[in-house]
Simulated assay, not measured.
Amino acid sequence: MITCALAGLVWTVQVAVYPLFDRVGVDAFKAWHAAYTTCIGWVVGPMMLAELGSGAWLLWTGRRDTSFLISLALLAVVWLSTALVQVPLHQRLSNGFDASTHQHLVRSNWLRTAAWTLRGICLLFCL
């Protein structure tokens, strides 16, 4: 299940990757962050698109149980948070490390972590 893989990935990023951004060093951060965002984009992008596509397909084919509909709302939270919060914060960090932006990224990403985790739980109820 793609959602469970993304939930595991977001927990890894939330607990082990984002908190360590401040350990990279100011001089190396821009290059490191550019490499990180490229690499993570190749992993997360196709998975998020597949998750969105499978959700849309299930909705189109008539899936309407409560757990599934809640999972779609959580998917919307993930996409909105990604587009409106995390991507702009990463764009700011692409100019160089900023402690305030870094802290905002770590704090705000808890919303996506919770949403993907709860979405995975909802979808397990659908099985």
Rank of each mutant, 00 (worst) to 15 (best):
R107W: 10
D22N: 15
V87K: 00
A56C: 13
C39N: 15
C126T: 03
A5G: 08
L80I: 14
S71N: 04
V17I: 12
S108P: 00
L52V: 06
Y36C: 00
L124Q: 11
H33L: 02
F21C: 01
G53L: 06
G8P: 06
W116L: 15
M48Y: 09
F97L: 15
L20W: 10
R63E: 14
S81D: 11
V43Y: 07
S81M: 13
W79A: 09
T82M: 06
P88Y: 06
Q14S: 03
V77R: 12
D98A: 08
A16D: 03
F68R: 00
Q91C: 13
G45F: 01
T37L: 02
G45N: 00
A115D: 05
T61K: 13
S67I: 00
L6M: 06
G25S: 06
F125V: 11
L58R: 15
S54T: 09
I121M: 08
W11A: 09
L105Q: 06
N95V: 14
H102I: 00
M1Y: 13
L49V: 15
G55V: 00
D22W: 12
W32I: 03
L74V: 01
Q86F: 09
L74H: 02
I121D: 03
D65V: 04
W32F: 08
S94D: 12
F68M: 04
R112N: 03
F29E: 14
L69H: 08
V26N: 13
R112H: 03
R23M: 08
R63C: 11
I70P: 03
L111K: 09
S94C: 02
G96P: 08
L123T: 07
M47H: 02
T101F: 10
W60S: 10
L111E: 05
G96T: 05
A35R: 05
F68T: 03
R112L: 02
T113V: 08
F29Y: 10
L69P: 07
L89N: 05
I70R: 10
F97R: 09
H104V: 14
R64Y: 05
R119H: 08
F125H: 15
C122E: 01
G8I: 06
F21V: 04
W60C: 08
H33A: 01
L59G: 14
W42S: 12
I2S: 07
W32D: 01
R92M: 13
T61A: 07
A34N: 11
G120A: 04
L84T: 05
A34Y: 09
V44E: 08
L72N: 12
L6H: 01
A114E: 04
